[in-house]
Design a protein around this nucleic acid. Structure first.
Lengths: 116, 116
DNA sequence: TCCTCATATCGATATAGGTCGAAACGTACC
DNA sequence: GGTACGTTTCGACCTATATCGATATGAGGA
């Protein structure tokens, strides 16, 4: 049974502590979403009616230079959250199909708010 | 219906883009969990059998200075993920009861892995 | 009151990463 | 081939923050 101090917060929340290696991996995942420009960029990609958007249409709503937007796009692609497809001169981006549910819950703020 | 380009990734993932203000708030939440030392610290607090742990027992497993551990603890407290209680000379920390489910899913890596 | 010890805060340093202009790269069109 | 244009990469700068030694704070105990 429980210890003396507080009845509410007793018993371990998890079975065992994670390793530092696992912590590094998990932190890297969270870091991808820890930048406001990147979150909004992901949000714009996720909300275009066509389901995909040309990079040329992303500079203006982000209010950042074209180089900066390109950098954030590459971070999101490397994390597997969006896909990149070259079509002629243009690069098209879309939410990765297998991550759509995750992206939706992130942008609806279900994760931290715990609505899910 | 859908556009020409790809049938898999059609239609918006979310209804509308988030505002920059919302993005800042959400990014701040993710930033709390984007540091490996902080994640492991949260993990150690969450896994002690007693459900709470004295700060004096946290320096060694974290392999960081007392000042650094104290700093990370304050970040986690400010984020509402853990609670702090002073008892005599000692400060005791526990996972915030109303955030236990969330902390558990974070540390089990359910969020990014999407195990749900 | 003085001493000890646990913890937080301060000041300084180092590193990570967001940002942008410029250059490089690639594709289309002539 | 040469030109134009969209995008990425590079180099530099700058801010945020992780880190630690030193100091301050605060609670017991002698």
């Amino acid at each position: 049974m429980c210890k003396i101090y507080s009845m509410e917060t007793c018993c371990p929340v998890t079975e065992s502590a994670i390793t530092m290696d696992d912590a590094e991996d998990m932190a890297a995942d969270f870091k991808v979403l820890s930048d406001p420009v990147r979150l909004r960029l992901l949000s714009v990609v996720a909300s275009v009616p066509e389901g995909e958007v040309c990079a040329c249409d992303l500079n203006e709503p982000l209010e950042r230079s074209q180089a900066t937007v390109s950098h954030h796009l590459s971070v999101l692609v490397r994390a597997g959250l969006i896909t990149r497809e070259q079509r002629g001169k243009w690069a098209w981006f879309a939410v990765a199909p297998d991550r759509a549910d995750f992206v939706r819950s992130v942008l609806k703020n279900d994760i931290f708010a715990g609505v899910g």
